[in-house]
Nucleic acid binder design. Structure first.
Length: 826
DNA sequence: ATATACACGGATCCCCTATTTCC
DNA sequence: GGAAATAGGGGATCCGTGTA
């Protein structure tokens, strides 16, 4: 049988002691296909340097005899080959040792602790990764496959009979082909419950949303007419059964939720267990499997056999959050940013307190959440596809992995063209040692001179750290033990480290990424139509390039190299300092610089001259280092630190000719300041940048102060929001948000690590002399008057004080008004 | 444990000394 | 008058959140 096939989900099983892969995908008619295949299983033994042929021969004989009886099966070494390979850039002789079962490779490796063998590698990749590497059936790429149709066959224990697919095929041949993108079948879901702790309350309803399909399942019957999408069931048990039934009937490629790894799926699982319902969502009727990801923190991934369960929150977190405006990753904010739609209004109440006529709104709300989740999936589908294709790992994993894992997957799947044997994961002890290593020196930040400036340009290095890694060949495999003459050398913490000039595989891969990304980016710029796929791939490469530096400095990395990471920062530092010097030499004046960007005054030079100068600069830069023009700006503002004497770093505001603001670091971009302070500061900055002087801004602040004093400010504007970053009991310093969290706990308001805690500072009620701010914390719903002095002196003043100081205005006097001191009145 | 370092700034913690309170 | 409690100052530390 011959057909076209696109792999979506990968799984494996053992049959008669051997490993088989089971790939679920679609053909061009959108039929669901299961492909069964296998591959050779092996590990590498890297030999010591000066072994004689005789020694190698007898070693091979010895290894060929290895046979293990463990875990109820027999695994043996099936054959041994000798190969010329590279390991960390060095040529080595290595034995390719084939064995029966991948899961036993570790035990085989234990038997290979021999004096002739230098290192053992390649047995910690996982069978699925190993298989993809071996057979190159890459996820979400099209293939023409040939194979044997399994039809009620007893081969593999009758696997095709229990599997709900159109065809089950044992693979013989495959060829990669071009085909249009997959049009995936997607079903989004969302549940509503009374209790937020997993499984501790009833599930009131479950919504489902797919193409031409919307449904809210509930056991709550209300009077009157109900929307057609609501379907009643008898009770909660039937609710779960109906959910299973619909998922099975629709049988989507992707079952999508938002925070569903951490909430919806485990919740349904817990309730199903309570009612002794088998949650047979898998194509093989199996229940979702939950894997602990991370240590104890309840971080779980829910895997359903054959149907890819996607938790969009996780993907958005790693792939997008750093470029987002949203201050939280709540469905509401994220949907608003990407879909321009919000959640429906519905204030959460316990179901017993919901009025009869409110239920319909609740159903609508529940359905809308699934609708938004579905919309977000469509929005991110190009990114999910491209990430999966670039990393070459199953979408289930790629959608959940952090950036370090993505970088590593990319490396592992690109080692072959360098003939490299993969490095192993660090052991627990190694990780411990790495983590104890001292921090190295990072980026250079130039202390600005506070002031309001006119006519500014900003240059920055494109993919700065990535370009440095490529240009200076910085990696674990290129690090030299001794300083050599013809090498890239730099001082790190008083010691010189050197890197070979012979290109290493890691910098070479990175070079590829950066060059391809540049190509995509320029294509995107020149083309008139929006190409979502190109944009997504460009974005995937950008993220990879940016994460490459962090990867080498990350203690959990296979290719961890602190020296390379430190050298990257050091070379980058040198580059930016050189650039600053050149810019100043040309007659410009540098105001500020951070890591890879430089802001400078044009000093009467024109924009054209500056662009020409940029080209001139670029000609002199080494390797792939490149400066680009970030933009020209009409005005820019830099302030002092709170201490008052020195210029504050990582804090500035710019306005371009079109009036567009670019604000960095100021309180107005920080979510842990109250809205009022943020808005006031924002307006002050805007007025000053627009006007070029402080007079309007000052009046505005005066008005605000008056309003605060007259209690004309609504409480909502005064709420301070701070995230709870760890369990309450672990806090050493009991700060205001911890007090607020404790109050919420007492009121049984669900809080968890990660919850944004909102509170306001109320007037003192205790009358104690020595009162801390936390003693005046009140929850937003709690009755009380806001503390005027606190909001003036701890929110508004700190937000604007340093700005007005640029114009030598002491705002503190404004606040005090008639009074001279404020502390004295206590 | 789940990419890195640099940076700001609020609030508490903690130690020290001076002052007040109490017997 | 002397011991204990409290106030207040100031640096260290904790903590959250940014920039790059």
């Amino acid at each position: 049988m011959k057909l076209q096939f696109i792999p979506i989900d990968y799984d494996y099983f053992d049959f008669e002691g051997r490993n088989y892969i089971k790939i679920i995908g679609r053909n061009e008619q959108e039929k669901r296909i299961c492909v069964i295949d296998t591959c050779e299983v092996y590990l590498w033994a890297i030999l010591k340097n000066k072994l004689k042929q005789k020694q190698i021969d007898s070693l091979i004989k010895k290894i060929e005899k290895i046979k293990l009886d463990i875990k109820g099966r027999t695994t043996k070494v099936e054959k041994v080959e000798i190969h010329d390979k590279n390991f960390l850039g060095k040529q080595v002789k290595a034995l390719k040792i084939f064995a029966t079962n991948y899961k036993d490779l570790h035990d085989i490796a234990d038997k290979l602790d021999l004096k002739e063998i230098e290192k053992r590698r390649g047995y910690d990749l996982g069978f699925i990764t190993h298989y993809i590497l071996e057979k190159k059936i890459l996820p979400l790429n099209w293939y023409e496959i040939e194979g044997e149709l399994l039809n009620n066959s007893l081969e593999f224990g009758g696997i095709d009979m229990v599997l709900d697919v159109d065809f089950c095929i044992k693979l013989n041949k495959l060829k990669q082909i071009e085909n249009s993108a997959l049009n995936p079948k997607v079903l989004a879901y969302d549940i509503e419950c009374d209790e937020f702790r997993i499984g501790e309350g009833e599930i009131l309803m479950i919504s489902l949303f797919g193409e031409n399909f919307k449904k809210v399942l509930t056991w709550k019957k209300i009077k009157g007419k109900i929307p057609e999408y609501v379907e009643y069931v008898k009770d909660e048990a039937e609710l779960i059964e109906k959910f299973i039934e619909y998922v099975r009937k629709i049988s989507p490629d992707f079952l999508v939720g938002y925070f569903s790894d951490g909430f919806d799926l485990p919740y349904i699982k817990a309730r199903a267990e309570k009612f002794k319902i088998k949650l047979s969502l898998g194509l093989d009727n199996s229940q979702p499997k939950f894997h602990q990801s991370g240590m104890g923190k309840g971080l779980v991934t829910g895997k359903i056999n054959g149907i890819v369960h996607i938790d969009l929150l996780k993907f958005i977190q790693t792939a997008y959050s750093q470029y987002m405006q949203s201050e939280t990753l709540s469905l509401n904010e994220v949907a608003n940013e990407f879909l321009n739609e919000r959640k429906k209004d519905f204030k959460f109440k316990h179901s017993s307190k919901i009025e009869e006529d409110e239920w319909e709104k609740y159903f609508e709300y529940n359905l809308h959440d699934s609708y938004l989740t579905y919309g977000l999936f469509q929005k991110f589908w190009p990114d999910l596809i491209e990430f999966t294709r670039v990393m070459q790992e199953p979408i289930f994993d790629v959608s959940r992995n952090g950036m370090s894992k993505n970088v590593e997957d990319f490396i592992i799947h690109n080692l072959e063209r360098f003939n490299e044997i993969p490095e192993k994961r660090p052991t627990y002890d190694e990780i411990g040692q790495r983590r104890q290593r001292e921090k190295y020196e990072g980026a250079f930040v130039l202390e600005p001179i506070p002031g309001l400036y006119e006519k500014i340009a900003i240059f920055d290095f494109t993919s700065s750290y990535g370009s440095v890694i490529v240009t200076y060949n910085l990696s674990k495999s290129t690090l030299l033990e001794k300083n050599e003459k013809d090498s890239y050398s730099i001082e790190i913490g008083g010691e010189i480290v050197s890197f070979s000039k012979k290109p290493g595989f890691f910098p070479e891969m990175l070079k590829d990424i950066i060059i391809r990304r540049k190509k995509f980016k320029s294509e995107l710029k020149s083309s008139s139509t929006e190409d979502a796929v190109k944009r997504a791939r460009s974005n995937a490469f950008k993220l990879l390039a940016n994460a490459a530096y962090g990867y080498q400095g990350f203690f959990g990395a296979r290719y961890y190299c602190r020296e390379a990471a430190a050298a990257t920062a050091a070379f980058a530092k040198k580059s930016i300092k050189d650039a600053i010097e050149n810019i100043n030499k040309e007659g410009y004046k540098t105001i500020y610089s951070d890591t890879d960007s430089i802001a400078f005054l044009l000093n009467k030079k024109t924009e054209e001259q500056t662009k020409e100068f940029l080209n001139k600069l670029n000609e002199k830069l080494p390797g792939i280092m490149e400066l680009e023009l970030e933009g020209f700006f009409k005005r820019g503002l830099w302030v002092t630190t709170r201490g008052g004497e020195i210029g504050a770093k990582k804090k500035y505001a710019l306005v371009d000719e079109k009036g567009k603001l670019k604000i960095r670091g100021f309180e107005t971009v920080r979510r842990d300041w109250c809205t009022l302070a943020r808005q006031v500061q924002n307006k002050v900055i805007r007025l000053i940048l627009e006007d070029g002087n402080e007079s309007h801004a000052l009046n505005f602040v005066k008005e605000t102060i008056k309003k605060i004093k007259e209690r004309k400010i609504s409480k909502e504007e005064l709420i301070i929001r701070t995230q709870l970053k760890k369990p309450i009991s672990e806090y050493k310093a009991i700060s205001p948000h911890v007090v607020a969290a404790k109050k919420m706990q007492e009121l049984k308001i669900p809080i968890d690590v990660g919850t944004l805690i909102g509170y306001y500072i109320a007037e003192s009620t205790t009358g104690k002399k020595r009162e801390l701010i936390r003693d005046k914390v009140k929850l937003p719903d709690e009755k009380g008057e806001y503390d005027i002095v606190y909001y003036l002196e701890h929110q508004i003043l700190p937000a604007v004080e340093n700005i007005f100081q640029v114009f030598s205005i002491n705002t503190k006097e404004l606040v005090d008004g008639k009074k001279q001191t404020t502390l004295g009145e206590f």
